[in-house]
């Protein structure tokens, strides 16, 4: 009988003990948690190192998008100065960031790795219309600088915009072991030919191809 009540009192000690344990809360703007390599942040439209746009205006991303937040219109490349290596290019490209669920299916669908995701997620806006990212906010410049509506401040780190999509650089894309460590993606302006993501081999097979080339 008596021991039963002692057990209940023990709960008080359990609670009291917690006061001296480390806190689980991260005081966010001051301290930022390390993001996973394949973090899904805002999108970026990539260019090849020679300045050509990767987007060919195929609209597969818009088709696959479960949230229907992407609007793309393709246009034939001008014959004398083509924008993309393909037949067409995306001359309208809009993503409604309020609708986007950051599932990265557009990244998976893209045949040319034109759209990838960065690690930046601080995208607060003052109006709904500002949340629609147009081509001018998504497309990187020929030297690889990604535009962003908000300026650099203590709340965001624009350096995260250069971190490329981790999913694409997974060691065994689509789960196929023969792709492990093989760069099956194209180089990007600014970042060059990105190396395979490290530390992904389940069996500890050493990965090949170390450094990137411009």
């Amino acid at each position: 009988m008596a021991w039963r009540y002692l057990k209940q009192v023990e709960g008080f000690w359990v609670v009291f003990r917690q006061m001296f344990k480390p806190r689980v809360t991260t005081p966010y703007p001051k301290v930022k948690r390390v993001k996973p390599q394949r973090f899904h942040g805002r999108h970026v439209l990539n260019r090849y190192p020679n300045g050509m746009e990767k987007c060919i205006g195929c609209e597969l991303c818009a088709g696959v998008c479960p949230a229907r937040c992407i609007y793309v219109r393709g246009k034939d490349n001008p014959v004398d100065e083509p924008v993309s290596p393909g037949e067409r290019y995306g001359f309208i490209y809009e993503i409604n960031m309020l609708r986007c669920i950051f599932c990265a299916m557009c990244v998976e669908a893209c045949p040319t790795e034109a759209i990838t995701m960065t690690q930046l997620f601080e995208m607060s806006v003052q109006g709904r219309e500002d949340a629609i990212y147009t081509r001018s906010e998504l497309l990187m410049s020929p030297d690889g600088v990604v535009p962003h509506p908000q300026p650099q401040s203590k709340f965001n780190d624009l350096g995260e915009l250069t971190l490329a999509d981790g999913w694409m650089r997974a060691t065994a894309a689509a789960g196929r072991a023969e792709y492990q460590g093989i760069r099956h993606w194209t180089p990007t302006a600014g970042a060059g030919h990105r190396p395979p993501e490290q530390g992904q081999a389940a069996d500890g097979v050493p990965e090949t191809e170390e450094e990137s080339e411009g």
């Binding site: 609670v15 009291f16 917690q18 006061m19 344990k21 480390p22 806190r23 689980v24 809360t25 005081p27």
Partner: peptide
């Protein structure tokens, strides 16, 4: 503050 301490949070800060 005390309740947040007892729940491993930081509370108002």
């Amino acid at each position: 503050k005390i309740v947040s301490d007892m729940q491993n949070r930081v509370g108002p800060m």
